[in-house]
């Protein structure tokens, strides 16, 4: 880029400076590599341990090559002990359901805050800020009593309901709507476009990248959420992945069955990781173009 061109222009003592630059590059890259590997350590450990037999884990914790390749047996035992298919189904239903509901609720609300002026607007916006400060976890007991009172204890809807209004979504989308140039809106109105239609046809596509960025965070959050689903469900048929994983881990850990626990971890995490690797370019791009402010 232009910066590089400037470098060469300013370069007074040719070869020496170049050598310095190469040395710097090597050092920086080496550090980066080490840091990356350190960060990857837990993931590597998960994968390696899932391939090990129990005694292997206990006796040779640092061994990279397992003495016996036990991944398939471990996985079979993991699948035998709990209905992971049910957990997957529940988790997907909850995550997607929550996301769809969140979008249906927050986009109109954000649009309203951005485009209309109405009585008590600040008051209602306060609702949103209040929500930002207090996560559902902090309100565990009261929300439990409410959900229970609605007869939704031990249901997927019960898990989903408190989360379907997202303060972050409203704040982000409102900001996005505010950035749409006035000229666009005015010309649409001149063409006879009503508010609702405007929101659907023009507004949403314009802020698409922010919607995507938000959707990703919401899905990941619901996939991994542990505490609330644990409290609000009881039967195996309604369990989500995070809770199933935690329970499995509690049982397996007390018998030191780390190979099984890590195999289960892979089972739970694989789709997310795969999706992440696949979508990571899009992910970064969506954050960039959204210019979260």
């Amino acid at each position: 880029m232009s910066a590089k061109a400037t470098n060469v222009d300013w370069d007074k003592s040719g070869a020496a400076a170049k050598r310095k630059k190469i040395a710097a590059t090597v050092i920086v890259n080496a550090i980066i590599l080490v840091v990356s590997l350190l960060f990857l350590l837990p993931l590597v450990w998960i994968i390696i341990t899932s391939m090990k037999d129990q005694m292997d884990v206990l006796k040779q914790p640092l061994a990279i090559i397992p003495s016996e390749f036990m991944f398939v047996e471990n996985m079979k035992e993991v699948l035998r002990r709990a209905p992971w298919g049910v957990f997957y189904k529940n988790t997907i239903i909850v995550a997607v359901g929550v996301l769809v509901a969140q979008l249906c609720i927050s986009i109109p609300a954000a649009y309203a805050f951005a485009s209309f002026k109405f009585k008590f607007m600040s008051f209602f916006y306060l609702f949103v800020l209040a929500r930002l400060l207090v996560s559902p976890e902090s309100l565990l007991l009261p929300n439990y009593l409410t959900i229970n009172g609605l007869n939704l204890y031990n249901t997927l809807l019960g898990i989903a309901l408190p989360s379907i209004a997202s303060a972050i979504a409203i704040i982000i989308f409102r900001g996005a709507f505010l950035e749409i140039p006035a000229a666009l809106k005015d010309s649409a109105r001149i063409d006879g476009c009503g508010d609702f239609r405007y929101m659907l046809v023009i507004g949403i596509p314009t802020i698409k990248s922010r919607i995507i960025a938000f959707s990703i965070t919401s899905l990941v959050y619901q996939w991994d959420n542990y505490f609330w689903p644990m409290v609000i469900t009881e039967s195996v048929q309604k369990r989500t992945l995070a809770v199933g994983m935690a329970y499995f881990g509690i049982q397996a850990e007390s018998a030191s069955e780390w190979g099984l626990t890590m195999a289960a971890a892979i089972l739970v995490v694989l789709p997310l990781l795969v999706a992440f690797v696949f979508f990571q370019r899009q992910l970064v791009d969506s954050f960039v173009t959204s210019g979260i402010k």
Binding site: A82, P83, P271
Partner: peptide, 25 residues
């Protein structure tokens, strides 16, 4: 590659789901 791995994991999952999986219910 990602498609294959996703398919693989989904298959594993459906196999698990089809199996009894020790559900008392």
């Amino acid at each position: 590659f990602s498609l294959l791995s996703t398919l693989l994991s989904l298959t594993l999952v459906f196999l698990a789901g089809c199996g009894d999986g020790n559900s008392v219910d």
